[in-house]
Amino acid sequence: SIFSHGTLSSPFKQCNRRECVILFTHTDSSDTNTTDYETIIKSLSEETEEIKTKLKIFGEYEFFLMLQITVTLKTIQLILNFFQGWLYFNHSVYYISSTNKSWQDSRDDCVQRGADLVIINSKEEQEFMRQFKRITWIGLTDAETEGTWKWVDGTLLKTSFWYTGEPNTYYGRDEDCGEIRFFRNKNNWNDITCNMKNFWICEKMVTL
């Protein structure tokens, strides 16, 4: 069974459903270790049929329970089919770039992927970002009003992880964009000019 006692088992890393990391790599016919996505979907479908039989004892609640299972199955299939090469963590998928671009060009790339620059809402997500160990753009800017930092979805910054002394508009420069720079530290954000070239992280919310 792929699902076992609330966790995901092989080929996925054992983890809690709400907080886990799954790396989907591009399929390659020459790679014998490539995940067989069709097999996974078939297995999930078989488990759904098994659960259907067991859920008959719930009578009138069966329809609602099966609806939830069906939605979950379709969501997993969506992830497998369309998010290869992304990382999954706590109801979002993340794309890590392999090239450098300006903040706006990075955001444009994310939007083209149906996502946006990452919004960091918790210390757990902030810790998750540290694993990439590279300087990256995040979806934070005060370009609209100096000193008023907002995320790309328009919400005001509430929980922050600025490095000591940041943001500081270094030497009077117009530093309107946020980045993760001092990634070895828990508080590692920095403000910098938006035309600098960095890696970037895209985020797209998913519902499991």
Rank of each mutant, 00 (worst) to 15 (best):
V206C: 05
R134N: 07
N187A: 04
F64R: 11
T35G: 11
W103Q: 01
R134I: 11
E144L: 08
I96N: 03
R113G: 03
H91L: 13
N100D: 09
E47N: 08
A143R: 11
Y171Q: 15
W137I: 00
D28H: 14
T25L: 07
Y37E: 15
E19G: 14
T53F: 05
D105P: 04
Q77L: 06
F161Q: 02
T136K: 11
T148F: 02
E175K: 00
F161T: 07
T159M: 10
D153F: 01
W103S: 00
K186D: 13
R130N: 05
T164Y: 05
Q126R: 05
W151Y: 05
T193D: 13
I120K: 03
Q112W: 07
E203A: 06
W149H: 00
S45R: 09
E127T: 13
T7A: 10
V71I: 13
S1K: 09
R113M: 07
E47Q: 10
C15M: 15
E175N: 06
F83W: 09
I76F: 09
G165Q: 06
G147Q: 01
G154T: 13
M205F: 13
Y95G: 06
N185V: 01
W149P: 00
G147V: 00
L117R: 02
V21F: 07
C110S: 02
L87C: 10
L78M: 14
E125V: 11
S122M: 02
L156F: 14
V93N: 01
E46I: 07
S43I: 15
R134G: 06
